[in-house]
Design a protein around this nucleic acid. Structure first.
Lengths: 379, 379
DNA sequence: CCGGGTTTGTTGATGATGTCAAGGAATGAA
DNA sequence: TTCATTCCTTGACATCATCAACAAACCCGG
């Protein structure tokens, strides 16, 4: 699917524009892409014939002239599968071309043995495919130094892998040739870029709060992948030099304040209630329990400082907050905003912060978007 | 000059490739640009006729086959003028197309009045032009939120300007239509991108040490300009929360440790020798004076942490150090390297740090390169 | 010294891709 | 009904890069 029709460069750009920016008339697409209307007519013709695009019913008419005929990508024309690997579980989703989730599943990882993981991923792909048509591409995301295009995972700390050709192995196990592997935060960033709060912004950052801290960047409409080095390593950013030590020997890393584990541990030990869950800690702080409240304020300050630093260096105007533990923001928005303002340069316009409610399948959805982008853009 | 000949997109890319990567044979240029050899022949023909390119004498022959005929940009085909504005002085250079400085001058700024500054810039441009041909473009760089393409300076704290249409005023005063205004650190970054240590790297960062700290970014072969907000605001990055206050109310900002003024002040007050210059402080530290040595070690640590943070967020592999006070690096390389290593993630490859000896005219040279890039690339 | 091998550079035919000019289509407004 | 407006389509045309073929200039081995 999706590339057997020999997509040319112009067709790709029109297709992406329609995919990302919803139904558009040919004239509107021409304006956006800086093309002539006739070019759009010619470029969309084969895409319509092949069923990638659909004529939309004409919408509201309050303008002059001939009504526009909106075009839209047929989201059901192809399917994607995205898989997120964690230390002990696998999440997988099947989505349509607009990355809307159709089915999802989660499954425990029995071991970190490469063959076991590949078998588990293959089984998930089979189950999600069912009797339907096979997906156009499979994306796999995981923490570590994986980087799009390269099907080899250079290092995965939590799985203990080095130079594992994961993409090729899954392709062989499933018979689906297009398997792409990518860092999990970058995958989430890609999903926001095309189908989330990043739409319409040529540059933005995504900061994730969860087991750790992460940061993805889009600059000039391109996902920043880094050259050899990973990107978005904000977890060890220094916040207070009087804080606790982290495993790298720093004092007061951001992750010592703002990860879900750090918040839970701090509240649980301070209140001597080792059974407290992370959510319970947030609830305590929301109710006004002083220690919990203070710990979350400190977390909010740390997160605000991280976001400000990212924005100060890269110049992004929009920062999206996401991740499993992003609910912490609601409890400490005041402290966060104050820290963000304090660390933001006064000559700059304020930063737009968008908080994205998070479900765990978002990780897998991000992997599906990476697969989609790779399939369409070839990178 | 330089664009009257109606440069097409293909010609531009060949021209830039030859300008930046020195003399290249047609075949080599074709390989680098992913073009066919015949395309390069056709694209270079009009450039050769118009004198923008020169046939180089054939070099060493140790390969098989027909000897290649290197092509190079004629650096004398056009001239650029770059101007750097500071609070009380103006530096200006006239360069050739490869940004080699031909003449330079410095001049005091009598006032911060816009007309006075424009007159002073105009006079400098006239003096540097002399009886020669007028420059193809003029670039002006200054600290603040100026951003390429836009000839208006939104804010300049040290000049007290807001929304000054500097580019247009200088264009009117000099009769040279192409006047480009840009942030000074970005201009320096552009110079490194095309004619410095950044050549051959698609992504790198430049960190400047001087009156303050600055940071410029090139990601994916493009100079990062930021969207509305400035980039590279690393001066207020938090290093120690027990340090001195800065004017924004932070404790232990990077600029409190690593700017030339901060280092000088720290050494001078500690040793109770208010007359000490910055250079003298470096000399004392190099000789082993304990207090000066310690102060410079702390500066090196802070700078190392700044560089590590920039690289961790953006994923650049190369960081160039520059600026008026970059000589401090030689005195504290050990502390810098240790801090850099400590704050760099272990899963990443080490960062290449290149120290660029700095003269003040480099600022103005950067402005010339901005003018050149704008003239050629149209951005 | 002379012909294969090799790489470079040039030329003309070809094809892909976009613009332009012209005009038809579908609406609101007068 | 007629006009203005906007959208969409079509065919002529221009641009630009590739391809195939070939000429040029060198090495090398006999």
């Amino acid at each position: 699917m999706l590339s057997e029709a020999h997509l040319t460069e112009g067709m790709r750009s029109v297709f992406v524009e329609l995919l990302v920016h919803g139904p558009l008339s040919r004239a509107e697409a021409a304006r956006r892409l800086d093309l002539s209307p006739s070019a759009v007519t010619k470029l969309t013709k084969p895409l319509l014939q092949d069923g990638y695009l659909l004529q939309q019913p004409v919408g509201d008419r309050n303008a002059m002239g001939r009504p526009s005929q909106p075009l839209a990508v047929d989201p059901a024309r192809a399917a994607l599968i995205g898989v997120k690997l964690t230390e002990d579980e696998l999440f997988a989703v099947r989505t349509d071309l607009r990355a809307e989730i159709q089915r999802e599943l989660r499954r425990p990882l029995i071991s970190h043995d490469v063959d076991d993981v590949v078998a588990c991923v293959g089984e998930a792909v089979r189950d999600l495919t069912g009797s339907g048509k096979p997906p156009a591409a499979v994306g796999i995301s995981l923490a570590g130094t994986a980087s799009g295009g390269d099907p080899v995972v250079p290092t995965s700390p939590f799985l203990g892998w080095r130079n594992v050709p994961l993409g090729g192995l899954v392709a062989a196990a499933t018979g689906i040739p297009a398997v792409v592997v990518e860092n999990d935060v970058r995958a989430l960033t890609a999903a926001q870029q095309w189908f989330g709060a990043g739409v319409g912004h040529s540059s933005f950052a995504l900061v994730t709060v969860g087991a750790g801290l992460g940061c993805g960047l889009v600059i000039g409409d391109r996902l920043v992948r880094g050259a050899g080095r990973g990107t978005g390593l904000v977890g060890h950013m220094s916040i207070h030099d009087s804080g606790p030590l982290c495993e790298m020997g720093h004092r007061g890393c951001a992750r010592a304040y703002v990860s879900s584990a750090a918040i839970r541990r701090a509240v649980a030990t301070t209140l001597d209630r080792p059974d407290l869950t992370f959510e319970a800690c947030l609830a305590l702080a929301a109710e006004g329990q002083p220690a919990a409240r203070r710990i979350l304020e400190e977390a909010g300050e740390a997160l605000g400082q991280v976001v400000a630093t990212v924005a100060n260096i890269t110049g992004v105007q929009l920062v999206i907050l996401s991740g499993e533990a992003v609910a912490m923001y609601d409890v400490c928005a005041g402290a966060f905003d104050a820290a963000l303002a304090a660390h933001t340069h006064w000559t700059s316009t304020p930063i737009d912060v968008v908080v994205k409610p998070f479900t765990f399948s978002e990780w897998a959805r991000g992997a599906a978007v990476i697969a989609l982008q790779h399939r369409i853009l070839g990178r």
